[in-house]
Amino acid sequence: MTEPKRLSHGDDLGASLLASARGDQPRAGSRARTAAAIGLGAALGTAAIASAGAAKAAAGASIAPKAIGAGGAGVKVASALWLKLLAAGVVTMAVAGAVAVKVERSSHHADATLAERTRAPVNAATPTPTPVAPMNVPPESPITPPTPEAPTAIATPTLAPTASPTASPIAEPAKSSPRATQPAASSPPESPLAQELRSLDEARSALARGDGSGALTLLDRHDRAFPMGPLRTEAKMLRVEALLARGDRAAAKKLATELLARDPSGPHARRLRTIGDGAP
């Protein structure tokens, strides 16, 4: 098949409109905020938060404490992909966190400033995270090559600086910030996505304990609360696993088949096919 000529290479109105999209690009700080949010995801999925201070600070604004120990059925942090992601994301946050103790939080100005200061380390640190370590990271948050435990230790206390209004699940900084001792009332409200994550993690925890029925009850509640949530596919997948855990193979198989029909090439397709075929 020969490649068609691109319309944007013309000189009419259509080409002008298409050319207008050439400037589409995320603003400064956008990627850093996402990196911080992913760090939060890591905190949710893994087993422990190293710093008690961080956990305490997180209690006010974040979903992290309830998610401790939810790692069982959650994110498996062993893959090379995960390490790659953390190299980009968590190191960013470690640096950002170190900067943050000196930066006034929460204002757009601070956010933008931080984004600027964070940008260089993001790119510089991508190939290998270790060179960043000597900079100015608090001793409580050692940067080590990204082992499964390391990301959590780094991520949690350092999430706040890149928080945007839409990233409210992110924790307040734990240390060296006078405001961190203020009550939780000053924390931003939990975002819908954070609530959804927390709800799902409760079900995941139940499943990890082998409590299929408990997980199903929590998933029922989850579905009522977040019928159109962005993680609803994950909720359905958890339901399949919970049904299996409860020993309800027929229901699990039926749901797996339905899900597979809806999205035959989705990320869970292989697992669903296995279940749909009647294997465990």
Binding site: R33, T34, A37, L40, V75, L81, L85, L197, P230, R271
Partner: peptide, 22 residues
Amino acid sequence: RADDAAQQVFIIASRKLDVIRP
């Protein structure tokens, strides 16, 4: 909204890394 959505996309991806083939 693209900022918010990008964040969602990567959060979802980070939680499904164990099932995404590289």
